[in-house]
């Protein structure tokens, strides 16, 4: 950018301009190096006794029982949803008085397909007691167990999941994030006979990002349909 005859005056102005922009930049950033605030620091600075909203009314209606961990002195400080009151075919003793022959085809339980770690490892009798039906569920040791505390049974093998479930990384909390902690039992989400989640269609179809629908083509499907 040369202006004949004006070289040095032009140069001076350019220097001034540079100086000014430099000053502006310094002014913006301040004397200390800027760094983003960290969540971890916020947490460390403010964590403490919790005054969450009152949620008693949200959990009041839930059928729940305090979680227990055998061998521990203290009871757990959270609750699980109960199971017994949701089942029709339990306890076994309400139908079965005599021991069941497991080789026969299951009549009343025809709909149960066992797909849990393969039949050489898991059979009906791994978790149920077909002998005297004192209890519906048994530990691997044969000791009786209430359906409400089924997590104890699952945790015999799935101890890592049990640990995470107790802490809150596995499973699902019910109703409220604050106040009394009530969580789903293992069987609240998993079918114990087929614990893997099934394949199915998503309940919602996302609109493709690169597809711009003309307004009139957008339909308004009924509620509850697959393409909600």
């Amino acid at each position: 950018m040369a202006f004949p005859g004006n070289r040095d005056r032009h140069g001076r102005h350019l220097t001034r301009m540079c100086l000014l922009s430099l000053l502006m930049l310094v002014g913006c950033s301040g004397p200390k190096p800027p760094h983003p605030a960290r969540v971890a620091d916020t947490i460390a600075a403010h964590e403490g006794p919790v005054q969450g909203p009152d949620t008693a009314h949200l959990t009041a209606e839930l059928n729940r029982v305090r979680a227990e961990f055998p061998g521990r002195l203290q009871a757990a400080d959270f609750f699980v949803e109960t199971r017994v009151n949701q089942l029709k075919q339990a306890p076994c003793a309400q139908c079965h008085a005599a021991p069941v022959d497991l080789d026969k085809a299951p009549k009343a339980h025809w709909d149960i397909q066992l797909e849990h770690a393969g039949n050489h490892m898991m059979q009906c009798s791994t978790c149920h007691d077909p002998g005297d039906h004192k209890s519906s569920l048994i530990f691997l040791s044969g000791a009786a167990l209430s359906m409400d505390h089924v997590y104890q049974q699952c945790g015999q093998c799935h101890f890592e999941q049990l640990r995470d479930w107790e802490g809150g990384a596995h499973g699902q909390r019910v109703a409220a994030w604050s106040g009394e902690r009530v969580v789903r039992n293992c069987t609240g989400c998993h079918d114990p006979h087929q614990p893997a989640f099934p394949k199915r269609w998503p309940v919602h179809a996302a609109r493709p990002a690169d597809e711009t629908l003309p307004i009139q083509e957008i339909s308004h499907p009924e509620e509850g349909s697959a393409h909600d």
Binding site: H46, G48, G168, Q172, W177, R184
Partner: peptide, 20 residues
């Protein structure tokens, strides 16, 4: 339905999110 989502109070040391 799979319990993949955890929500809670970060300032509560006993919350599930803090456990995670």
């Amino acid at each position: 339905p799979t319990g993949a989502r955890v929500f809670g109070n970060l300032l509560d040391p006993n919350s599930e999110i803090r456990y995670v």
